[in-house]
Amino acid sequence: MSLLEVREVTRRFGGLTAVDNVSFNVPEGEICAVIGPNGAGKSTLFNCLTGFDSPDAGTVTFAGRELVGMRPDRVVRAGVARTFQNTQLFEEMSARENVMVGCHAKTRAGFVSTALRLPWTVKEERLAAEDADRLLRLVGLEEWRDAPAADMPHGLRRLLEIARALATQPHLMLLDEPAAGLNNSETEALAHALYRIRDHGATLVVVEHDMGLVMEVSDQIVVLDRGCKIAEGPPRLIQKDPEVIRAYLGEEDPEDV
């Protein structure tokens, strides 16, 4: 059975149909890539899958639960975490604290119990800190633990956001252009992190421009162009798909490719 089922999702902004009747499935344990030229509707689709936006039509079913209409924080609690194209870190907080915020979905100390410093809240804090340290090691950021996010280099900020998303203990992770702005060695490190995350039991959906990364890591690729799905399949077929080539390179002679 598929972990995520996207059915006929449509999102319009005025006269523009940003996502047009898109359907696809993501089987559990796979890495699925969503690609397409700029403006193809990838980020809008992501927002519709995670509660940050509401589709005008269609359904998004995750492990049997309908996600459309759910608040973003509820979607996270249901087991779907995401990162952003423009990283949304807490700049003045340390790397460790950033990841600890991600633990919120799985911890429960509220205002009253924290104000009273009940013993279980102290223990929960300690466990969250240990969790955060473990995840920072997983993405290779343990040296940056106490540095404010604002002081971290661009590439590492993306990894920090991934660690924060992992802290919510997701079954499904949606990464919005994780390789944007990364150099080759950072992209390489990212690819390894993605494999490690999948091996930890999370299913991944990745929006990405970096074709090298997409072709390397994904099991399945969904191609969007101007809001519509134009192709779907494993990397070796997508590479040869004439529709995809046309969408990326325009109406040029196939011999030029």
């Binding site: 973003p72 919120h104 799985k106 410093r117 924060r164």
Partner: peptide, 26 residues
Amino acid sequence: NIVSGRPGRSMRALHGSELGAMASGV
């Protein structure tokens, strides 16, 4: 006690980035 625990961290997160806080389940 509040600011050094979980609620205080979510308050600072909210101050830092509302999108990031929502994506963390706040």
